[in-house]
Design a protein around this nucleic acid. Structure first.
Lengths: 146, 146
DNA sequence: AACCCAATGCAAATATATTGCATGAAGCTG
DNA sequence: CAGCTTCATGCAATATATTTGCATTGGGTT
């Protein structure tokens, strides 16, 4: 567990009853250094004890709705999920490797985006700014040349 | 047609034979002010004369591969397609409305991203930096309050 | 006790995209 | 020019990711 986060508290703080399944899902998402797909999360949970795939989707939806978890788009077909930004986790860009599908978190400073003007002037409602780098990660690049 | 772009030339310049279907697909993508989904493109093409959905997907794949068209992820499930950046089209961020699914192109200056440090230091291969704003567009926001 | 609601499970449906295989036209080779 | 190859296209089937409908269960409420 991230030493800043108590997952039960995170849940109740977001108006969500801390059911065992919700805690399990949130633990998997929160304990990972990088975002995971619903399918990844399901597989990890299945290893310890049974859970339904649909339940995982539904829990993820609720967590995203209530701002606990962030849904991140990839250059591929599935969404990935990571902890939503909060006091201890700043928003940050991600790197998506189109070969292995792994998504890395980049440091918030690695890329500076100035969104201030946009927030002021955009005529609609802005919920989120997503920055994603697509490419091929170091490992896959190496593997290719072998 | 965008007055800078001759679509046949764009195709042959990208090493792609300018077949009638490819030109049609590229016209639809290029003539639109904002990116479209494969399905949107298919529907528009069907209005003038018949084409297979799979052909549309395949043509889009080739166009993306050869750098003529850009595949843009959304906050939703489908990819959208727009002209790839070139001498006349700078890379720019997009706004995705989660209500109506419409994606707008924002001006390149509306948001400044400094990727220089990243390009220098990232250990893998970077193909693309995608910046997307998610939210609710002006129209949908208005419609909600009515 | 009767009721209600939310969480979960299972089966089926949906949306999007991809694959396999067939056809036909264009070009090349001998 | 006959035979071969290549590539674009079409059609049917399949794969993948996600969502929906409906039933069950358990906890709280009246």
């Amino acid at each position: 567990m991230c030493h800043h986060c108590n997952y039960e508290e995170l849940l109740s703080g977001a108006d969500l009853e801390a059911t065992p399944n919700r805690v399990r899902v949130l633990e998997v998402v929160g304990d990972n250094r990088f975002p995971l797909s619903a399918s990844d999360i399901y597989k990890i949970l299945e290893r310890s004890s049974t859970i339904n795939r649909v339940t995982v989707y539904r829990i993820l939806d609720r967590l995203v709705e209530n701002g606990v978890v962030e849904r991140i788009s990839t250059g591929g077909r599935a969404f990935y999920y990571g902890l939503a930004p909060n006091d201890y986790h700043q928003p940050h860009p991600h790197f998506y490797c189109k070969m292995c599908g792994q998504m890395d978190c980049l440091s918030p400073e690695s890329l500076t985006v100035d969104t201030e003007a946009l927030w002021k002037t955009y005529p609609g409602r802005i919920d989120k700014v997503e920055v994603r780098i697509d490419g091929i990660c170091k490992n896959c690049e190496k593997r290719q040349t072998e």
